[in-house]
Design a protein around this nucleic acid. Structure first.
Length: 466
DNA sequence: TGAAATGTTGGGGCG
DNA sequence: ACGCCCCAACATTTC
């Protein structure tokens, strides 16, 4: 009987896991997670807590099935060598991971160790969704068309594996750091699947409409689960495909299509990072690599702290630091504010998001920032600038989102909630807010800084041509 | 997955 | 009945 190390990385699940399925069919499976210091030192604490408590849940699920999770700490290659010796395993299996660090790590390990990789973190591997000449897509719409034209994937509908072979007693379990999962995000695949089913049988019907509303729970809130593979993207896609074949109301159909598109955006940015790893270091678009960003530490701090004087920006930035999550629309608003209104390098924002987001993932985070800053693949044109007041009025019409995260403004009437600096002094007094005292005056005036950013982008573009 | 300025159209009030 | 003007609503252009 062969023994196989099941190396878990960002795929904390027992359902639809091709590497695990392969291992279970072959023989004795030893589930392993390696705490890699190189990765952990970059992980936000919200993310670490979610990951560690997710590993605990996985261990519990494995124990219910007669197995357990083995945890090691250190360099993956070194630890795998030890583990192969300790367990006399014949093979290591894992899911392909497409970040530059993971690819390099896996290629090195594959040179000396029997590592077999399977596709499962995406529906299709990035090498499969390419143009007919083999070059990668750099625009979303053609990418999504090609993606949708690929053969339908139908993951096994069967539930989780019932029973695992036992892990020999002499293998030490190792220890996991203590962790409490961030509020609102209980870890584990059961939770992920329940969330998805609840979403697909309910709010997906209004998703197209409500997903942008900051003051409502219109999104699926599944991103952390996809981030750590507690939910299989193939299962998600095949579930939504199946629903789309049923008779649906027009809004339901629209909602399903929109949500499916979001899943494809995820794969699009994974593919971009796979084919263009340098995007982690610079703008994808060479014309926007040499923008003269402002060095403005005070403004950057105000943005980070949620003290810009623009309520919707401040609410979102405080939501991030308090909860580890931020609404997608809010991400775009604050990203536009940093890169356009403040003219601060989007990479500062990219790094800050990675420090706090539970779902922080290099591919999506980088893609999103480059998109909003207008410097990336298929990016918003650089002159597309969000007006934070209009966005706020449109997507948080009553100011509920603002009041939740910026309590200083709790008693400000709806009329002024998006731009409190326009409040007459008497009203400031009666609503308990004094602009410039207990809530900041806007650190920049949106209409004044628009020309500054347009000029900076134009200049960079001109320089890149000469 | 912008916003604002500018252009066009057409209904209705009014002399 | 007719021409004129106003302006909202929508479309187009520009950054």
């Amino acid at each position: 009987m062969t023994t196989i190390l099941w190396w878990i990385r960002r795929d904390l699940r027992l359902h639809d896991h091709p590497a695990l399925d392969y291992a279970l069919q072959r023989g004795r499976v030893i589930p392993v997670f390696i705490l890699d210091e190189v990765l952990l030192k970059n992980e936000a604490s919200f993310r670490k807590n979610f990951l560690f408590s997710g590993l605990r849940v996985l261990d519990t699920e494995l124990r219910k099935r007669g197995s357990r999770l083995i945890v090691r700490r250190g360099d993956p290659q070194v630890e795998l060598v030890h583990l192969l010796r300790e367990t006399s395993a014949d093979e290591i299996v894992a899911l392909e991971d497409y970040t530059p660090y993971a690819r390099l790590r896996d290629e090195r390990i594959r040179k000396t160790l029997p590592l077999r990789l399977f596709v499962g973190n995406t529906v299709y591997p990035p090498s499969m969704v390419v143009k007919s000449d083999g070059t990668p897509y750099t625009v979303f719409t053609p990418f999504s068309k090609a993606w949708k034209a690929l053969p339908v994937v139908s993951p096994p509908v069967s539930s989780l594996p019932e029973r695992f072979p036992a892990v020999p007693d002499e293998i030490l379990s190792g220890s996991l750091p203590e962790a409490v999962s961030p509020e609102g995000f209980p870890p584990g695949e059961m939770e992920a699947i329940n969330r998805m089913e609840k979403f697909l049988s309910g709010s997906v019907g209004q998703y197209a409409e409500l997903r942008n509303r900051l003051d409502q729970d219109g999104t699926s809130m599944l991103s952390p689960y996809f981030r750590f593979g507690m939910l299989s993207p193939r299962v998600a896609v095949s579930r939504v495909w199946k629903i789309m074949q049923e008779p649906l109301l027009p809004e339901e159909k629209k909602g399903c299509e929109t949500w499916l598109n979001e899943l494809i955006w995820r794969e699009f940015y994974i593919s971009i990072l796979y084919h263009f790893p340098h995007v982690l270091k610079m703008a994808f678009n060479p014309a926007h690599r040499d923008i003269e960003w402002r060095h403005a530490p005070k403004d950057l701090d105000a943005w980070k702290e949620g003290l810009t004087g623009y309520p919707v920006v401040d609410a979102a930035m405080r939501q991030l630091r308090t909860s580890g999550w931020m609404h997608n629309r809010a991400r775009m608003i604050v990203a536009s504010f940093l890169s356009k209104d403040l003219l601060i390098n989007w990479q500062e924002g990219e790094r800050w998001f990675m420090q706090w987001l539970i779902d922080g993932d290099p591919a999506s985070n980088n893609g999103g920032w480059q998109w909003t800053a207008g410097v990336g693949t298929d990016a918003a044109p650089y002159f597309r600038i969000f007006n934070p007041v209009l966005q706020s009025a449109r997507f948080d019409p009553h100011g509920h989102f603002i009041r939740k995260w910026v309590p200083e403004l709790r008693n400000v009437p709806e009329e002024y909630i998006h731009s409190p600096w326009t409040m007459p002094l008497s009203l400031q007094f009666s609503s308990g807010v004094q602009i410039g005292k207990n809530y900041p005056a806007p650190i920049v005036m949106h209409h004044e800084v628009k020309s500054r950013v347009l000029e900076a982008y134009r200049k960079a573009q001109k320089l890149s041509l000469s």
